[in-house]
Simulated scan of single mutants.
Amino acid sequence: MPDRPIRLYGDPVLSTVSDPIDRIDDGVRGLVADLIDSVKVEGRAGVAACQIGVGLRAFSYNVDGVVGYLINPEIIELDGEKTEIDEGCLSVPGLWFPTPRHPYAKARGTDLDGNEVIVEGTGTLAQALQHETDHLDGIVYLKRLLPEHRRDAMRAVRESEWF
């Protein structure tokens, strides 16, 4: 399966809450394969299904050489004071802004066999878990920015070549 084109900010699929995956079938297996292939592209830490145009609750991650995925993920624990960390998004290409995130996150989901999977971590993995779960809830990271950064971000988006 090839990596799929990434939907850009402004596409309605990115602001829509993704539907739960009720059963594992060939379509879901293909989606997970596409998510894995898409996240393996250099410089990518995560890809949510909505970013490739599919409104289902699944994402892949690629952090520190570990590639994985979660189906129907939910954040079950966040720890530590939120701190601003530079964050970007494939759907907002070329733009990075300080985004408040917890330094630790734990997510629960399932794999293609229906087994429960727990993924937890700090740093980039914690950031990716929060970022990708937000995508599935119809939230692009720009909505998480503090007001002074959000104004700059929205201006940069409007002035970008891709918008």
Rank of each mutant, 00 (worst) to 15 (best):
I21H: 14
E84M: 03
A48T: 08
D137E: 05
R4F: 07
I71Q: 00
V66I: 15
P103G: 00
P5D: 08
I36P: 08
H135E: 13
R44D: 12
V119N: 03
H149G: 13
L136H: 04
E84R: 03
V157Y: 10
V13H: 12
L142R: 01
V157F: 10
I76M: 11
P100A: 06
H102Y: 12
N72D: 08
Y104K: 02
S18I: 10
W96K: 10
T124E: 13
V17A: 11
R101C: 12
Y141W: 00
K82L: 14
P5Y: 08
R44G: 08
N115K: 09
P98S: 04
D19Y: 09
D3K: 12
V32L: 12
E120P: 13
G43P: 09
D37H: 11
G80E: 06
R57P: 08
L136Y: 05
M154N: 10
A45W: 13
Y104M: 02
G10E: 14
A153R: 04
W162R: 02
F59H: 01
H135K: 02
E81N: 09
I75R: 08
I118S: 11
E132L: 03
C50A: 14
F97M: 09
K143I: 08
I76C: 14
R155K: 15
V39Q: 09
S38E: 11
H131V: 09
G123P: 11
L125K: 02
P73R: 00
R108V: 09
A58V: 01
L129F: 03
D22I: 10
L90W: 04
T16W: 05
L8E: 07
V66Q: 15
D26L: 10
I76L: 14
Y69R: 04
V54H: 11
G53I: 12
G27T: 15
R23G: 15
A107E: 00
P98F: 03
R158M: 15
R158C: 06
A58R: 03
T122W: 13
T110C: 12
H135W: 04
V140R: 06
I118G: 15
G46K: 00
P93R: 00
G30H: 12
R150Q: 12
H131Y: 01
A126S: 14
V140S: 03
D3W: 11
A153H: 02
V39I: 06
V66L: 15
I36H: 02
P20S: 05
W96G: 05
D37P: 05
A156F: 10
I21T: 13
T122D: 15
L90K: 00
K40W: 05
L14V: 07
G55D: 11
